[in-house]
Amino acid sequence: MVVIDINKKYPEIWEFLAEVPDPEIPIINLVELGVVRNVEKEGDKVIVTITPTYTGCPAKKLFEDLIREKLIEKGFEDVQIDTTLSPAWNTDWLSEATKAKMMADGISPPTDDNKVVTCPNCKSTNTKIISKFGSTPCQSFHSCNDCLEPFNYFKCHR
């Protein structure tokens, strides 16, 4: 498990960033998703470093626009967004609280190596995979053998 301590030197800015929802899973925000890696200030300039979930994640550009928009709205005029690929994003960065939010929203959160997938509707673990690829690069498509509910599962990515 890769846990990277983030030095949240500018708690106020981190709070603002936590107001930016993930465009594809709006129930969680970009800080909870783990894509915001660092916040720095150089004079009046704010530098936010982000990391993409998947290299081809179509939301990558949108992350940048949404972050810039939010910080400008909060009065920061000079915003620079850098991207880092290392350490690589992984689903161990999602906290238990974040996973609970996903479950409540109908997305089954990542579990240890995708072995047990829980139905967000009836909480049964008697589920089957329908497609290894779901509606976004980070999800796969499943259905529940007990309540028959079809659902998205947020893939474990390490």
Partner: peptide, 8 residues
């Protein structure tokens, strides 16, 4: 999806 990965 695989195509997106490759473009990325």
């Amino acid at each position: 999806n695989c195509s997106l990965d490759l473009f990325g």
